[in-house]
């Protein structure tokens, strides 16, 4: 299929592995889905210490289940990316380990205290869910199918995150202050979640023309703020002064984007931000430490199915 045809036909769930897609499409889709999958893994990696640190047995259960779901989302997404025929899952995981794989800005920051968990689990997951809901109508069918299941599960994450936030903000004065401090630290990063305005984003145009991406960064950020600013305020969180946020007459918000630290954002985007690198490297060590198990399973598979493994890549 040539690119013009792709652009003409680029409706929801329009293209599947049986279509002969041009390389530009397959590469753009791989980049986008791989980024998404990597983010699931790195988000889970960031949150995993809080399974241990959860302050009640049932919170621990919920946190374990949440991290489990994120890994599950990674599984679905890597499969959707693999189906484009550009890279195998192991190649993508190796790229992630080697610092070539890119992922969301928020997951490059360290997370040290329980009070930070709802910043990810409520706000970042809420932002992610906003975007994911639009991706149910992406043009790559396997990606849309992955989104069906991801969105099905994600409601638990956001509500669980909200429950943790609610507990903190109705807890002791100390807990409320700790939560507010965490909010101030995370707020600019959360606003940057959707990336820079579209004119600064290099990949937006094409991804949108071929139906991979359904809404612009600006539209998504606006929708997110309209919902989550009132929520934050409802729980007693004070929105930090920077960046300046103005409320329009119609109840929507404008963000003074140039007040945000975009140098740091682009440093992160290149995997050159120190705390993020630490996360990448320690995950790499963990991945390499169990390479022997994967080898052993590959040998088993080889003995069982020889060269015609039904699990062979697409």
């Amino acid at each position: 299929m040539d690119l013009e045809t792709v652009k003409e036909r680029a409706g929801p769930r329009e293209f599947s592995p049986k279509d002969d897609m041009p390389e530009e499409y397959r590469k753009a889709a791989t980049r986008m889905i791989q980024f998404h999958a990597n983010s699931e893994i790195m988000g889970a990696y960031l949150e995993r210490p809080f399974i241990r640190q959860a302050p009640s047995l049932e919170r621990k259960l919920a946190f374990s289940a949440k991290v489990q779901d994120e890994l599950g989302h990674g599984q679905l997404l890597y499969r959707a990316a693999e189906s484009l025929g550009i890279k195998t899952r192991q190649e993508m995981l190796d790229e992630l380990a080697n610092g070539q794989g890119k992922f969301l800005n928020c997951f490059h920051y360290p997370m040290e205290s329980w009070v930070e968990t709802p910043m990810i689990a409520f706000f970042v997951d809420g932002a992610a869910m906003r975007r994911q809901a639009t991706l149910k109508s992406t043009s790559w069918e396997p990606y849309a199918h992955a989104m069906d299941k991801v969105c099905f599960e994600e409601g638990f994450h956001v509500k669980h995150g909200e429950a943790v936030l609610h507990e903190l903000m109705t807890g002791s004065k100390k807990e409320q202050e700790m939560a507010q401090a965490a909010f101030e630290k995370w707020w600019p990063r959360i606003i940057q979640f959707f990336g820079p305005t579209d004119k600064q984003s290099t990949h937006h145009g094409f991804a949108s023309e071929v139906g991979l991406k359904k809404m612009s960064n600006d539209e998504l950020r606006r929708a997110f703020l309209n919902t989550y600013i009132p929520k934050a305020e409802k729980y007693g969180l004070v929105i930090p002064d920077t960046p300046t946020i103005e409320k329009n007459d119609d109840g929507t918000y404008n963000v003074a984007e140039d007040e945000l630290d975009w140098d740091e954002f682009f440093q992160i985007a290149k995997n050159e931000y120190e705390p993020g690198l630490g996360q990448i490297d320690s995950r790499k060590k963990a991945q390499e430490a169990v390479a022997w198990v994967r080898e052993s399973m590959d040998n088993h598979e080889q003995r069982l199915y020889g060269g015609t493994s039904p699990q062979a890549a697409d």
């Binding site: 893994i41 889970a44 990696y45 995993r48 399974i51 241990r52 374990s64 289940a65 991290v67 489990q68 890994l71 599950g72 990674g74 599984q75 890597y78 995950r283 963990a286 430490a289 169990v290 198990v293 994967r294 399973m297």
Partner: peptide
């Protein structure tokens, strides 16, 4: 739970979490 996000494959990770 120490194996979560550290198991040999994604599928085995989900199982150990369960």
């Amino acid at each position: 739970t120490e194996w979560q996000v550290r198991a040999p494959t994604i599928e085995s990770d989900l199982s150990v979490a369960n």
